[in-house]
Nucleic acid binder design. Structure first.
Lengths: 121, 121
DNA sequence: TTTTTTCATATCGAAAACCGTAAACGATAG
DNA sequence: CTATCGTTTACGGTTTTCGATATGAAAAAA
């Protein structure tokens, strides 16, 4: 018995691998960028990423957020009511800006190397 | 005894964290890109990345290369003479092109979202 | 020749990150 | 009270990262 597949298993596996190997780093920049523009909430970010077609699991995202706070890239405020699992809003710190700056520089360099390279060499 | 430091320890730790969290994915794209232009050799890539200011250890790079080959993103030819540790040249496969395509699309999107274009203003 | 250096890849073990699933918790609705 | 929703946290197994070290052949030095 066969199933009709929109996407082959191969493609699905490919996507998962690309996510882990490459795109996860992009999402982290995404997170910082959003945090720079306004408070970011974990669960919202989860959906935002899904809207962009990336299926990130909570078990990946929340540790990332926590780590970013530990590293001092973000800081958070937790809603006063709601107990220990209350919603947390994350904001970018100066160190986080520094990270974005470094990442942005590299991103730019890679972008030019891949695409434009005008006046090559 | 004190040393003059160009970079503080904090910055060094910061850089290491950024490398691992974010930039490693960039290098992988870098690798694929180089493989698209001509054969890539591990040790050469190691130095190439160092020239760009990134200190990647062999214990990170070689497994990446092997994994990319396992995943069918690259294929390799090993020098006939030189035994089991002979130099390996890596080339991009069609699947690798597909990966670059996906990664490139995301890169472009992020680039524009961050509004990194220089010379604007 | 024998020894040492150089080039290049592979491997090891511990620490960290990833990821799906499940649990926890307060608020709100029925 | 019970069910459900929004949200974060915790749990475990697997995979990745990383520095250090081992391996192996060729080139240089002695």
């Amino acid at each position: 018995m066969k199933k009709i597949k929109i996407q082959s298993n191969d493609d699905s596996a490919l996507n998962k691998t690309i996510n882990r190997e490459i795109l996860l780093g992009f999402w982290k920049i995404h997170i910082l960028h959003h945090a720079a523009q306004g408070p970011v909430v974990g669960n919202w970010m989860l959906q935002e990423l899904r809207n962009h077609g990336y299926d990130v699991s909570p078990g990946t995202l929340y540790p990332i957020l926590n780590r970013m706070e530990e590293n001092g890239w973000l800081y958070s405020k937790q809603d006063k009511s709601g107990g220990p699992k209350a919603r947390k809003s994350y904001f970018l710190t100066p160190k986080g800006e520094q990270v974005m700056d470094i990442a942005g520089t590299q991103l730019k360099e890679l972008y030019h190397e891949l695409d434009l390279r005008d006046g090559d060499g």
